[in-house]
Design a protein around this nucleic acid. Sequence first.
DNA 1: GATGAATGAGAGTTCATTCAT
DNA 2: TATGAATGAACTCTCATTCAT
Lengths: 187, 187, 187, 187
Amino acid sequence: MKHSEIKDHIIKTASHLFYHKGYNLTGINEIISEAGIAKATLYNHFKSKEDICLAYLQYKNSAFLTKIKEVCASKKKGIGQVLAVFDFLEAFFKDKDFNGCWCINTISELPKENQRIRSEIQQQKNSLINFLTELVGQNLPDHSTLEQQKLAKQIYLLYEGAVAESHLHQNDWPITSARELCNSIIN
Amino acid sequence: MKHSEIKDHIIKTASHLFYHKGYNLTGINEIISEAGIAKATLYNHFKSKEDICLAYLQYKNSAFLTKIKEVCASKKKGIGQVLAVFDFLEAFFKDKDFNGCWCINTISELPKENQRIRSEIQQQKNSLINFLTELVGQNLPDHSTLEQQKLAKQIYLLYEGAVAESHLHQNDWPITSARELCNSIIN
Amino acid sequence: MKHSEIKDHIIKTASHLFYHKGYNLTGINEIISEAGIAKATLYNHFKSKEDICLAYLQYKNSAFLTKIKEVCASKKKGIGQVLAVFDFLEAFFKDKDFNGCWCINTISELPKENQRIRSEIQQQKNSLINFLTELVGQNLPDHSTLEQQKLAKQIYLLYEGAVAESHLHQNDWPITSARELCNSIIN
Amino acid sequence: MKHSEIKDHIIKTASHLFYHKGYNLTGINEIISEAGIAKATLYNHFKSKEDICLAYLQYKNSAFLTKIKEVCASKKKGIGQVLAVFDFLEAFFKDKDFNGCWCINTISELPKENQRIRSEIQQQKNSLINFLTELVGQNLPDHSTLEQQKLAKQIYLLYEGAVAESHLHQNDWPITSARELCNSIIN
DNA sequence: GATGAATGAGAGTTCATTCAT
DNA sequence: TATGAATGAACTCTCATTCAT
């Protein structure tokens, strides 16, 4: 395995564990034994557990953005492309891999002082808002830019609420509910 | 101090620490040193750390429900009483004690297997939905019962989203945004 | 309940726990909750856990001597009365309450320095040897006093081995085997 | 020090403490400070205290079997080789390291539920019975196989009784007594 | 005489990280 | 570069005993 392949392998292994068991509840030992590497090898690729956390967040977000954009693009232009974010979420929720939002999960586990992770998470959320703003811009051209921005934030709020609550209640009604509400404001 | 006073004292101390530092990052040692009691004293009052966690959640929720009901009741009957949940949240957010939702924070830190805490949290969220349903029922009597229930869930989603996102972004725009969206659907 | 009745109640409760769970593995809390008394009440009757241990040993030994003498006395005079110690043991072993020898069990759990308990146990064992010496003296009068003493000690050894090994192997072959060997030396 | 050397070092240190102070009365802290290693180092070599206990029992038994076989083999073939088990015991008793039987001592300290340790101990005892059966088979060839097995079990009982009682009474008369009785049944 | 709340000391175990090889 | 052994600090929890009431 090449150097970067090992790193990828570590990130994937750690991501699965962090996402499903939680950051603090996943030990370094678990990561290395799952990844089948030596402890020092892990520390050759990452300075600390926190660095792996950062890589985990980026890995998750990157895959997420790719997928959600894909799903939206697959729909016919117009309102449907906007509502597609909830179609994506519905599928995401039904996937056995679903365990809520990695950002929310992670931020809850870290001390307030940890600015490094916190700002990464804020950036990720901003990138989602940006995507939604573009999506609204492209598909609801009749609204003013200001209104588009306002709508994007509201959809973002609905999306975030739906992720968290479908996870918490283990039920997809929050997604349905958010979708309906979204539909009513973009018509 | 009487038995129950000590217990209350422990709950308050632990609650502050759990809420602000996180459950896993708060050690028993920190709780006892902050509370000024011996370790065994704590364990005379609580069987385990998890039991303290449960008491913490209940303490938080109880205070929360009291306060939000108070704020809503203080407004003039009608739409205002419904929107008041966001007034409450605005004040909550501005309080220096604000650190997001204790339920969301806590559930992120616990293993999936922990059904005891998870179901407490689900119950708390359901009690909020129930409150919102009553609130809508009393203040928006023109809607059908079914529509009232749907509205309550949507407001719940907006509220939850606003809590999480104002916390995450350290900014109150999500509250304002949720309030506006709420306003638009109840008019 | 009278003072001495409470004491008896504590001894019986503690004895059951000590005998079945072991001395160190039985906590004071377990004793009081099982006995239904307050912690300080226990300490009003016993200076320390060690004192309860002493009372436990004496309680066990006293009941044991009474019973074994009873069983032996119930047999027709002669060899049968001697072999009856193994009849007693057989019945003891089959009792669901059987958990080996309290003396051996207890001495294994205590530091060498604890002379108080150790000498109590040695006394108990000597009282058993004395009983066996009497038993042999009364039932095997053809042997010399010296031979009787030697026989008594050998029977004691066989008895002790049979108790320990039937307990360890959870099987009564050691009792049968000891009985046979005993039979062969007293004929 | 190599990995296995450290492990051996831990086993030896723990064995000495377990055997002389008892399993429950020996803390992990005592083992590590005596062994001069860090706590986590110990837990890198052993999963739990119970695992160290198992290694202790095996270490003791292995040394015991080696030694007793050696002593028996050193005698001239015949009755003497059988009686040699008590010669071994006599020497064992006189050794300042003598503290009774590790199996009996340990089993007394453990909860009934601990099948892992209990079965190890039963195995060890069975291996002793097997050795005695071989010994009798080789040195008392005139007896039938059945009689040999019966004899072996009786000698086992005598041996076990002698170990426990010499330890309890801190006197070697039980060994002498057992030896004589053994002598009388194999002639 | 009876209570139950409080305690200091210590239990076994796990953690992320480092370092010599 | 890759390793695995070693670590100090922290973890949750339990113990027998005491003391004010």
